[in-house]
Write a protein that binds this DNA or RNA. Structure first.
Lengths: 131, 131
DNA sequence: CTTATCCTTTACGTTAACGTAAAGTGAGAT
DNA sequence: ATCTCACTTTACGTTAACGTAAAGGATAAG
């Protein structure tokens, strides 16, 4: 069973980003694809990493933050200091996400209201047109 | 009952941002405080707006997007086109937030795992120290 | 053989969201 | 009176995350 490989273009298309972005993430130390000659070759593992980067972005992580997490995760040294740094970061992120959850819920409710009003208004307008 | 008023510094301190940011938001058309001479005077309504801007930021809204929403909300013209634009935007944002919710849940679970491992490792290390 | 389509590197350009410094105004305390 | 402090405007600087153009190499199709 041979592993599935990707070119940069394929990955870009599939994840709906540009090749430039992928190269930039590599420049930033977030990816390390192998090479076939001068061309980059991405494996499943690389794709997973890339997806993690994108998820991080959606959640408001900077590339630098994501890199720190990757580095911590990669270095399997697990020194006491490292672990505590890790726990500290997770704690912090948890707080941010909790806040985000609150924000999302609040905004969702407001969107519901706005939507209801809009639809109300629209039907009123249309009734006017009929009459 | 006289309404409570704020200076820019008070607002900045309370919301933990800089005065510069608040001025920048005004420059961007998001705020319109009254003046006492040359000094800005903020009322409750302005504070609410500012809070909305900050919540928007936490959710990944650009200032431009927030402004568009404010403008749509402010202009009470409620033309059919306007309303449909509004509905379209809310729909779009709802999608983004749904994605964010998924992302948060996924990450939360991973954080749980990481935390568990870290704590495990730490107690192991400490047991080693005792022995 | 050339045309097209990927890929590559190098390097300068761009945008958002402020930071920061300079220079000045107005009110209150000493 | 002058000092201090919070406010003001103007304007240039900064950072992240790419965009984009230039110039070229490799491979498959016509």
């Amino acid at each position: 069973m041979t592993e599935k490989l990707y070119t940069i273009g394929e990955l870009a298309k599939e994840l709906d980003i540009t090749s430039r972005s992928i190269r930039f993430y590599e420049e930033s130390g977030l990816l390390n694809p192998t090479r076939n000659g001068q061309n980059r070759v991405y494996k499943k593992k690389d794709k997973v990493r890339l997806k993690l980067v994108l998820r991080g972005k959606r959640l408001g992580f900077s590339l630098a933050e994501t890199k720190t997490l990757f580095d911590l995760y990669d270095s399997h040294q697990n020194s006491e200091a490292q672990l505590e740094t890790m726990l500290q970061m997770t704690e912090q992120k948890r707080a941010v996400m909790t806040q985000q959850l609150e924000d999302i819920q609040a905004l969702m409710m407001e969107l519901d209201e706005v939507e209801a009003r809009c639809k109300d208004e629209l039907t009123t307008i249309k009734r006017g047109k009929i009459a």
